[in-house]
Design a protein around this nucleic acid. Structure first.
Length: 856
DNA sequence: CTAGGGTTAG
């Protein structure tokens, strides 16, 4: 549906305000006490409690002759107003039904209020039927009420059409009408119409004279186009301001990521003599929470108590939230105190405290308990509540409760709401139930970037590379709630898989979205390009970005390290120190691994010794593992084991696994067995220990030992995960397993493999059957080698990509030694550059040599 | 009579 609106014909229909006559009729002037002697509505209507209202309405007696019809109407009208202002909509409806039964005729004033009643309780159909039944009794007020009703119920299109219809019949809009119609332009879809109406409002003068109109305009810019500049211009030009205006500006700045500005505005507001109310406080408290500005939060809290605003619902919620977000140690104590002292709890306060337990302290069991308490207290959870509880469930080993919630959510129709759906995806993905995760994704109302980023991350964690981006391809950028973190997540997904095509697409979206300068995005871009094999572009992003932090530097150093450019990595490291950026633990992992990838043993030692001494970074297990790798990889196995024994804490499986890897490379069975023993002591089911040791035996031809390990694995029901390789061609990821024939072009691929085999043999390639891990005849061994997934991926790359482009292959495990050798020959035979990323590093293979110098 | 401001999220 589109709405076309052209300014000339539109304004030609406007009648000047003086022509329009406001109704002279007023209920206020003709108040009379109603039949029941118990209530003097004239005084009480505004202050009736819900119980009193209920009694008054249920005891209404229209048959009584003590008062005239008009007096009865006047009093009913007051009751209706009381119902609306106390949000007792059910009572309001009861009143309406009683009036219908009484047969009293309702005038346009009364009917407009009824439209408002139904509008506010969400029953726009009823409101509309009243409006339609009014026929020619419709006046400006009833039109305004109807427009407002559509705006309230997310029917912007209908609101705008109604507005146009009203102009059509020659009514001139007043401030109420403008406020409603502008509100429906807060939807980004109608931003351009909003600008036209803005122009008209400027001419009418309502913009200067009416605070409400100004407020809706501010919101139109803030909500519809995230355009705080224009919002500020409206704010500055407004002749009249009040608490609401200030509050609006404060909350919008806080919501749009400028909490500092929000707090400044709050102070300016105080300096200008405005008295903040509950809404203001809750807005500024959110800003405070966002900045984790605890001391200001505490000051505001004491002010809240002194000013008596503590009983304000949303202030309580904001305080609960502020204390959880500001607690450096994640404690919920302060939040809990605020929560317990709140006079009444609603969905929001329950959700705030539950969220506190989940996010702050990770006390998931307590969060689930609170959720049950909430249900017991008959408070209905909303999708935010479910979001938090599902997060708590995701951390439980037993998904029983989580599944129950899922069933409940389906019944409530909430499972397709984005935030809930994302929480479900997360919950299932965490426990590896990818099918359930996928189903939760498929039923989402709106597959926006955030849900894509959730499912992509979920798949990435389980290395379902071909599925991860399958859906991303068609994703639409809805822009709703997307922030820099969304993009960073997506980039991380692309990086994990190594799909540079998707990575570039996301990069383009980032640029379009205006998040291009965000530091976390640039850091993610550096990492993405480098992990996808394009270190040059990674470096360019790094050079071009304005504001670099440790993460930016570390990302680029890691990039160089992984690509085997140790000297470049170390140069960057020194440059970073020169720039005055303090290295952290991750930086040292990058530096040490750079050294170990090229065998710079002395340099590595130097940094390991200086990290604490010169930069105060305490070496952790992973740093020790780097040194073990540094020594072991270079063949100094006995030094490595000496180093392990001298560590200040007991080596964990990671360290031993690193060492076992070195034993495999250098063929040392005795030390390898020891390492495997140490790993299995910590975890008898460790898969890598079994596989590495078995491979070590196999390479030495000790088939009996290989068999023994196989048997042991079978007994412990440990399965060997099959390694796989993948390659991206024309934006699609093609994944291959060992001996894979499932690809549609399998026949062509295997033909190419055969051709390659004979071609490279003539160049001197000798199959290295040490890498065949089964005990079979030599001839068969050779065939086995040519079924390796990395060779299949390379062959596919050769037949399906243009000649000049490098072939980028990814493997989830270490590349096999024979494949590595074969690829060097293949690069010679075909003149193609082959880039391989395996579990540990990159290999750039060209003209028969590899950037790793066969040291890896 | 009809209009403006609030919490929680990936």
């Amino acid at each position: 549906m589109t709405l076309s609106l052209s300014l000339p014909s539109f304004s030609a229909k406007l009648v000047p305000p003086s022509v329009y006559k406001a109704p002279t009729y007023s209920y206020r002037q003709k108040l009379q006490p109603f039949s029941s002697k118990d209530y003097n509505f004239q005084h009480l209507a505004g202050n009736l409690s819900v119980q009193q209202l209920h009694k008054a309405i249920s005891t209404l007696d229209f048959a009584s002759h003590q008062s005239t019809h008009h007096e009865q109407l006047v009093n009913c009208f007051l009751l209706l107003q009381a119902c609306i202002s106390s949000r007792s909509f059910e009572l309001g409806k009861l009143l309406h039904h009683k009036l219908i039964d009484s047969g009293l005729e309702l005038d346009s004033v009364f009917l407009s209020s009824l439209i408002s009643l139904y509008s506010k309780c969400g029953d726009w159909k009823k409101a509309f039927s009243i409006f339609q039944s009014m026929g020619n009794k419709r006046d400006l007020v009833s039109w305004s009420a109807m427009i407002s009703c559509f705006a309230n119920n997310n029917m912007e299109f209908e609101a705008l059409v109604t507005f146009l219809d009203m102009l059509e019949i020659g009514l001139y809009p007043n401030q109420y009408c403008f406020a409603s119609v502008i509100r429906s332009c807060s939807n980004a879809k109608y931003a351009s119409i909003g600008h036209i109406i803005f122009g008209i409002v400027m001419k009418t003068g309502y913009f200067d004279s009416d605070v409400c109109v100004g407020c809706t305009l501010i919101d139109m810019f803030a909500k519809g186009s995230y355009d705080m500049d224009s919002a500020c211009k409206v704010f500055d030009k407004m002749a009249q301001k009040d608490v609401v205006t200030w509050t609006l500006m404060i909350t919008r700045f806080a919501q749009l990521g400028c909490p500092g500005v929000a707090i400044d505005l709050f102070l300016t507001m105080l300096l200008n003599g405005y008295m903040p109310n509950g809404f203001t406080l809750s807005g500024v408290l959110s800003a405070t929470a966002e900045l984790e500005f605890l001391s200001l939060g505490q000051q505001l809290h004491s002010w809240v108590i002194r000013s008596g605003l503590a009983s304000h619902d949303s202030v309580g919620c904001s305080l609960v939230d502020m204390y959880t977000k500001c607690a450096a140690d994640g404690s919920v104590e302060n939040s809990r105190k605020v929560f317990d002292r709140m006079p009444n709890h609603n969905v929001m306060s329950w959700t705030a405290i539950i969220r506190g337990y989940v996010q702050g302290s990770g006390q998931d069991k307590e969060a689930i308990k609170l959720f049950c308490d909430m249900l017991q207290g008959h408070v209905t959870p909303n999708h935010f509540t479910f979001y938090s509880v599902l997060k708590a469930c995701a951390n439980q080993e037993d998904l029983h409760f989580g599944k129950q919630l899922h069933a409940k959510l389906v019944k409530l129709g909430l499972s397709s709401v984005n935030s809930v759906g994302n929480a479900l995806i997360n919950m299932y993905a965490r426990s590896g139930r990818m099918e359930c995760a996928r189903k939760s994704f498929d039923i989402l109302f709106e597959n926006n970037l955030i849900s894509y980023s959730t499912i992509v991350n979920a798949h990435v964690n389980y290395l379902n590379s071909e599925e991860a981006f399958e859906s991303f391809h068609n994703s639409k950028h809805t822009g709703v709630g997307v922030n820099s973190l969304t993009f960073a997540n997506l980039l991380n997904g692309a990086a994990c898989i190594g799909t540079i095509g998707k990575g570039e697409q996301i990069h383009a979206r980032v640029v379009k979205s205006g998040f291009g300068s965000a530091q976390c995005i640039n850091n993610a871009l550096i990492s993405m390009y480098s992990r996808c094999g394009n270190i040059e572009t990674a470096l360019r992003v790094f050079t071009d970005m304005g504001d670099r932090n440790v993460i930016s530097w570390t990302s680029v150093i890691t990039g160089f390290a992984k690509h085997g450019f140790a000297t470049k990595a170390l140069e960057m490291f020194y440059e970073m120190l020169q720039a005055g950026v303090k290295p952290n633990g991750v930086t040292y992992v990058a530096v040490l691994s750079a050294c170990s990838h090229v065998g710079l043993i002395d340099e590595g030692w130097k940094h390991f010794n200086s990290m604490y001494k010169d930069h105060g970074v305490v070496p952790r297990m992973e740093h020790y593992a780097c040194v073990v790798d540094l020594l072991g990889r270079s063949g100094s196995l006995s030094e490595a084991i000496e180093f392990i024994n001298s560590m200040p804490f007991e080596a964990n499986a990671v360290v031993w696994r690193t060492f076992l890897g070195s034993c495999r490379v250098h063929g040392n069975i005795k030390l390898g067995e020891h390492a495997a023993k140490m790993i299995l002591e910590q975890d008898p089911h460790d898969q890598s220990a079994h596989v590495l040791l078995s491979n070590l035996y196999a390479s030495k031809g000790q088939w009996k030992d290989v068999g023994a390990i196989r048997k042991a694995m079978k007994q412990k029901s440990i399965t060997k995960e099959a390694g796989s390789s993948w390659i991206e061609v024309e934006n699609k990821v093609h994944k291959f397993n060992l001996g894979d024939k499932s690809h549609p072009q399998a026949e062509k691929i295997y033909d190419e493999l055969d051709r390659l085999a004979s071609k490279i043999k003539s160049l001197g390639y000798v199959p290295n059957t040490d890498f065949v891990l089964h005990d079979v005849e030599d001839e068969q061994k050779e065939q086995y080698l040519f079924r390796h997934s990395e060779k299949i991926a390379v062959a596919f790359g050769l037949i399906s990509t243009p000649k000049l482009k490098p072939i980028r292959v990814f493997k989830d495990f270490r590349v096999c030694g024979d494949c590595h050798a074969a690829m060097k020959y293949i690069s010679m035979a075909t003149g193609r550059e082959i880039v391989v990323r395996d579990a540990t590093r990159f290999h750039h293979i060209m003209d028969g040599t590899c950037s790793c110098n066969d040291y890896w």
